[in-house]
């Protein structure tokens, strides 16, 4: 997955979780959970969506690496 595909996937998954969220307003290094007011259920749903959409297995201990958009890009496009 290249970076654009990752961003498209993030946008699609988040649209189902936080429909009103505007990703354009979220900085690359900002904690998504704070910026979009995601609780642990929302975040788990994000992980599920990313994992299924990308085919990448995401271990629970890796969650902190996916707290930011930059982190998600790095993790999934690695």
């Amino acid at each position: 997955m290249d970076k654009d595909e990752v961003m498209a996937l993030v946008g699609k998954v988040l649209a189902g979780i936080a429909p009103e969220a505007d990703l354009a307003g979220v900085g690359d290094d900002e904690d998504l959970r704070a910026a979009l007011d995601l609780d642990s259920m929302d975040f788990l749903n994000l992980i599920i969506g990313l994992s299924q959409g990308s085919g990448v297995a995401i271990a629970e201990k890796d969650y902190p690496r996916l707290f930011t958009l930059q982190g998600i890009r790095d993790y999934l496009s690695a």
């Binding site: 259920m41 994992s51 297995a57 629970e60 201990k61």
Partner: peptide, 17 residues
């Protein structure tokens, strides 16, 4: 929880809640 979740894909994981 960590042990349970480590063995499972995200959709089967549990939250502390």
């Amino acid at each position: 929880l960590a042990a349970w979740n480590a063995e499972r894909p995200p959709e089967q994981r549990l939250l502390p809640a």
